[in-house]
Amino acid sequence: MNDKNLITIKNLLVKRGNKVVLRVNELFIKRGEILSVVGPNGAGKSTLLLTLARLLKPNAGQILFNGNPAQKESDTAYRRKIALVMQDPLLFDLSVYKNVALGLEFRGASKSEIQEKVPLWLERLGVANLTERRAKKLSGGEAQRISLARALILEPELLLLDESFSALDPPTRANLLDDLKPLLKNNATTTLFVTHDLHEARKLATRMAIIMKNSLRQVGNANEIFEAPIDEDMAHFLGKI
């Protein structure tokens, strides 16, 4: 057992009906790293993320969290170690402050803890000026920053980002990625970042994993993968041929 690994996945199989939608023989997520999972649409990337969030039940295989079988814990106890940011911000029709406080409230945090942490994380994401704003009055970029603050404030052991920037226009996306990367690094937040955008994946990643045709095909650091794709399909996807 490698204690550097926060997550260890072995022989994972997820089916929808009779169709295999994801097969992962082995995958580790090291503590503190950002693992970008890339692949074409429909390849099975989000299935991996939803399985790790315990929002999908795998048909077979094992997921170890901190070396222990994740299945041993209740869904709620497990999910309180993670935080999920989806493609759309999915904010609630409340003030920005209340949206960011939501996950802390679920965990029974005290009012003083919430009052201390919410302004701090809004400041870190550069949206402190929006505290009292109604969430539905925000721009797309602002809303996604709030969504990230809502997840990061939980200081999760594992942050799951599901195409979290793909709905934003390119300049907004670039700004947000520039701001997010140091935040994740400084807090050593273990992150699984699912995207179909190779450039975005490479920009944020410590390591990359490529999923194609519902199967994990290659894992390694970005340079390794781009320089030595394992086959023609991979080379084609990476724009090498």
Binding site: D75, R79, L90, F92, L160
Partner: peptide, 20 residues
């Protein structure tokens, strides 16, 4: 329908999800 997934993804229990 994704709000339910988002709530679970923030650590809500079933009752907290329904209340939200």
């Amino acid at each position: 329908p994704r709000l339910r997934l988002q709530l679970y993804g923030l650590g809500a229990s079933r009752w907290q999800m329904i209340w939200a």
